[in-house]
Design a protein around this nucleic acid. Sequence first.
RNA 1: GGACAUGUAGCUCAACGGUAGAGCAAUAGGCUGUUAACCUAUAGGCUGUGAGUUCGAAUCUCACCAUGUCCG
Length: 378
Amino acid sequence: MPFNFDIEKSDSATNARAAIFHTEHGDIPTPIFMPVGTVGSVKAVHQAELRNDIDAKIILGNTYHLYLRPGMETLVAAGGLHRFMNWERPILTDSGGFQVFSLADSRKIKEEGCTFKSHIDGSRHTFTPENVIGIQRQIGSDIMMAFDECPPGESPYDYAKKSMELTHRWLDRCVQRYNETEPLYGHEQALFPIVQGCKYSDLRSRSAHHAAEKNAYGYAIGGLAVGEPTEVMYQMIEVVNEILPKDRPRYLMGVGTPANILEAIERGVDMFDCVMPTRNGRNGMLFTWNGTVNIKNKKWERCFEPIDPTSTAEADRVYTYAYLHHLIKAEELLGLQIASIHNLTFYLNLVRTARRHIIEGDFASWKASVIGNLMRRI
RNA sequence: GGACAUGUAGCUCAACGGUAGAGCAAUAGGCUGUUAACCUAUAGGCUGUGAGUUCGAAUCUCACCAUGUCCG
């Protein structure tokens, strides 16, 4: 059955759980981290490494970016994004809601939808809840996201409320269009509603109730890690997860650091995505169990130890800190590849290890023992 | 040996009478549903050396040193 969420083990001491989320492109063990592949490519990582070394179970694409380039004609002619990019496992597409927020310069949000100017050629386009569902049908993602507005973290209450209510009306329209359309490529597609409400508990609560009414295959928590204090983010997750159905996956959008992810898993989140492992990797930052490394720092110049001798990724086992230091300083493309592979492998290993401890029943003590080191700078 | 040119931050160059700036390199920091192989900060120069003109010289003059090009 597509999109069944089979919970293997719920942690007794926390809200963490270990499950399998079934899709027609394969099973996703949760908690899971999903590498971001905005334009049909996880930057600097090719599919064989994603599959074998990193062992990503699902990746992201972005509706806004794919719609602008290569465009829907090409994607439909290719037979959807899976075939276009040679990725057989599940794909989740973000709806472009975040771009509505981050490309605020040239946007106009109205009841009908959002008009914006392409950052590529300046051409004008409109996204509505209806056509965003249509575009995601054409992309053929396994999990489609509702079209939402993602307001800044420090938005005042009135704006947060208005924005959330608009997102709710847009969700109603997304669900309607979802129900009246069919997949184009023979595999079922899920639609995840997105909970908004900024840092206001009452709004978050209302939004979670509104989303839960849709009886969806899964739910997303959006609008976090956008400028509000981290503690507020954790509180909002608690408020929302109290309301969202326990037997469906919960996806915390765009988060985050390894520590953020463990805290959110403890609060009952199952799915994560973030550009941090890939972007920060390209910019010379490595995540490890002992803390974060700025590989550009002079102190790595002569460190001839392998990046991680026990890693599932060959690059981690065969290349040294000193070599990666050299490659990144020299702006060699191989450096971007190694750093990206390392960080994604670490993130997938992080959630895999968390999952194992949930099943073994000692998640809370394990988390407490590792979390202090994760964000330390070394 | 001679003529001409050029000597300014590690490198490439600005500033051409009012007491030195940039890019790159260096050294750090940042990055949370990717417009990001990106952005920010810091450090680094008694302007080749010595004398002179001037209220004031990287800037004008002279000598020397170095480098380059050309001519013998």
